[in-house]
Structure formats: structure tokens, C-alpha cells
């Protein structure tokens, strides 16, 4: 077992990170918030990078890459608090359609002309699904999330749930890292009692605890992406591990980051709340924490996940 990524994987993730850092900063989030949430130019930029076709097989004009690469890029989407429905369309719907052999729309998805939001029985609402499920738009706690109610006809396929949960976990890891970065930078420059507040253990230990949570959520995410890619045994349990750990890391980091910012953290003026609200929204999407913990405890205690020395770390 080896957690190193290839140079190609690292270069890909880095190029997406650089592109989003350069084109999708907090000022863009504020503009979208006041001007209507979606911008065709942002979407076209993602299409031009080939991201909508990342998981589309090459014979359907995609890049034909895998879930590990998609998870790395979804992490970058979380880091940038990207609101466009790239992850739901290209990293959740596409691999599900490919696995079911439904290839008709893949070319259009890769070309960026078709967006797909898939409903699941565990998600009473879908984001950016207004085309398929016309109805009253709902206000989400995340001001950049376009939610609609879908008719009670969602899939109950556990594979779809696994894909959605995995990609939510990936975004949550990126969101957590971004919030930890914002809080850490603030703690270095905000001074009280004659020194940066980050020198005080009361704050630095809370930030360190967030760093621990984030660092340990990452390999759980990568491992889950790897097992889902090859559909190895106990895949669902590994996905649930990743979702729970990424959710906990993001929520803990969001709460800590607000506390570190003091009263400023409670204002709409500080950028932090965009990330914190996305984390809140994704924490409950594609199975909340209780749902995923239950899948794990049933596997561990119920006996479907083999334990005992002969199966250790199966």
C-alpha cells in the first residue's frame, strides 16, 4: 500500500488549484452572491480545462481518468468554494451513468452543454437540478447553492450514494483546509495583549487540533476513492469512513475558524462564512454523519466487516 500520487495526478490537481486561485477568489463569491449565483464564463473555464469530461471515457470525448483524480479535483473545488455544479455533474453523475452503461449524454456533459443532478432517496433536495425538476427554488443556508425539491422518485442505489458521499467528503476536506488557512493567517496578524493571538495556546491548540483532523481525513478520502474505483470489498464502509471524518474535520474547523476570528467571524463581511456554510450544507448531503456512522457500526458489530487477527485491516 502506498499513498503517494503520481506526478501526473499532482500536476493535474495543482493546475486546477492555481486556476481557481487565480480566477475564483472571494471577490468572485461576493459578486455571485449579489448578482445571481451562476456565471457562464466560470463554467466555460472549467469546460475548457477538460474537467467536465474528466471521467468521461475517451471514446465519448472525455479524458477517461478515475475517481482518485476526481477526488483530488473535488478537494480543490471545495478549497475554492466553487459553486458551479461541476462535482455533482462530472464526478457523481458521470461515473454512475458510465457504470450503468448509459452513455448517450456523456458527450454533451463533456462538452459542457449538459448538466445533470441526480436525486437519491437520502437527499430530499438537489443542487442545480432546476432543469430536470422544475419547481420552487429553495433558499439554502449556503447562499451560492441553488436548491430545488425533487419529486419523490430518487434512486436508492447505494453506488450512487457512495459516489455522492465520496465527492462530498472530498469537497469537505478542501473546505476545511481553506478555513484552517484563513484562520491561521488571521491568527498571525491579529494582535492583542501586545502579540499575535496565534501565539496563545488557547487558540493555537484549537488550530492544531483542526490540522490533525484534516490530515487524518485526507488518507481516508484517498483510500475510499481507490476502493470505489476498483469496487473492492467493503467499499461502502470505506466511503462512510471518509464522509464522517471529512464532515467532522470541516465542521470542527469551521467552528474553530469563527472563534479565532472573534466578533469579525460572525459578520457577513469576512469571507469565512461562505466556506463554513458550504461545509454545513455538504455535511448533511449524501447521507449525514449519523447515517454513515450507522453503516459503519452495522458492519463492525453486525459482522459484515470481518474482524479478528486473521482479517486485520481487510
Amino acid at each position: 500500500m502506498d499513498f503517494r500520487f503520481t506526478d501526473d495526478q499532482l500536476t493535474l490537481a495543482e493546475s486546477v488549484r492555481d486556476y481557481l486561485a487565480g480566477t475564483h477568489g472571494p471577490e468572485v463569491l461576493r459578486r455571485l452572491d449579489s448578482e445571481g449565483n451562476r456565471d457562464p464564463a466560470i463554467w466555460q473555464g472549467l469546460v475548457d480545462m477538460g474537467l467536465t469530461g474528466l471521467l468521461v471515457p475517451e471514446e465519448h470525448s472525455g479524458l477517461g481518468l478515475g475517481l482518485v483524480e476526481a477526488a483530488l479535483i473535488a478537494t480543490e473545488c471545495g478549497r475554492a468554494c466553487l459553486a458551479e455544479p461541476l462535482v455533482d455533474t462530472a464526478f457523481v453523475a458521470v461515473p454512475w451513468l458510465v457504470r450503468r452503461g448509459e452513455v448517450a449524454e456523456l458527450g454533451a456533459i463533456a462538452a459542457g452543454t449538459r448538466k445533470v443532478a441526480l436525486p437519491h432517496v437520502l437527499n430530499p433536495w438537489v443542487a442545480d437540478g432546476a432543469d430536470e425538476f422544475p419547481g420552487q427554488p429553495l433558499q439554502s443556508v449556503d447562499p451560492l447553492r441553488n436548491l430545488v425539491m425533487f419529486p419523490a422518485s430518487g434512486s436508492a442505489d447505494p453506488h450512487l450514494l457512495d459516489l455522492g458521499a465520496l465527492m462530498s467528503a472530498a469537497q469537505l476536506v478542501g473546505l476545511a483546509e481553506a478555513m484552517l488557512h484563513q484562520a491561521t493567517e488571521y491568527a498571525k496578524v491579529r494582535t492583542q495583549f501586545g502579540q499575535p493571538v496565534g501565539a496563545f495556546q488557547g487558540l493555537k491548540h484549537q488550530l492544531a487540533s483542526c490540522a490533525v483532523a484534516v490530515e487524518f481525513a485526507k488518507p481516508a478520502l484517498w483510500y475510499a476513492a481507490g476502493t470505489l474505483e476498483c469496487m473492492s470489498s467493503n467499499t461502502s464502509v470505506h466511503v462512510s469512513h471518509a464522509k464522517v471524518m471529512a464532515t467532522d474535520a470541516a465542521i470542527q474547523t469551521a467552528e474553530t475558524a469563527i472563534q479565532v476570528h472573534g466578533a469579525m467571524g460572525y459578520t457577513y463581511e469576512v469571507d469565512l462564512h461562505f466556506w463554513m456554510k458550504r461545509a454545513w450544507a455538504l455535511a448533511g448531503s449524501w447521507g449525514d454523519r449519523a447515517c454513515h456512522l450507522k453503516r459503519i457500526d452495522q458492519a463492525v458489530i453486525g459482522g459484515t466487516l470481518p474482524i479478528g487477527p486473521e482479517h486485520t485491516f481487510a
Binding site: M1, D2, F3, R4, E215, F216, A217, K218, P219, A220, W222, Y223, H241, V244, M245, L293, K294, I296, D297, V300, I301, L305, F313
Partner: peptide, 25 residues
């Protein structure tokens, strides 16, 4: 108790991933 056992199971696996990740650097 079941939830805490489930969290212990997750934590142990994270520990393994963390060590392998550390050692593969």
C-alpha cells in the same frame, strides 16, 4: 456504545493510513 465502537474502528484505520502515508514520504 455502538457509535463509539464505530468511531474507534474508523480511528484505527485512519491511524494505519496515516502511518503508511508518513512512511511513504
Amino acid at each position: 456504545i455502538r457509535q463509539r465502537l464505530a468511531k474507534a474502528e474508523i480511528g484505527l484505520r485512519l491511524m494505519r493510513y496515516g502511518a503508511l502515508r508518513m512512511l511513504s514520504n
